[in-house]
Amino acid sequence: MSAGPDTPAALWRRNLPVWAALMALLALSAWAAYWPFKTLNTVTGFAIAGAKAGLVLLVFMQLRRASGLVRLAAACGLFWAAILFTLTLADVLSRLAGG
């Protein structure tokens, strides 16, 4: 913990590149939406959102250096959301496929 930066400038040096990356991803995302593909555009949009979320989680929310317990809590949220999505969409998709 004390290995981190100890001046305001060092803090900015650590966090500003992440912000710049986020902005770049946002610009890419807005541009990619106008590509002439259909599914690929959607996939790109959500993949970029996932990348942005990853940056915020790991650096801004400090998951990178968080305790195992905190990571477990974060993972639980995602895992249970996956249960909700998987089983519900199993029904929705098979109903759509079945007409």
Partner: peptide, 20 residues
């Protein structure tokens, strides 16, 4: 940050469909 993250996912959901 969580409120921010929610918006990060809302952005492609609400604003990006059908642009092409």
């Amino acid at each position: 940050h969580l409120v921010d993250l929610v918006w990060v996912f809302l952005y492609p959901m609400l604003y990006l469909p059908g642009r092409a």
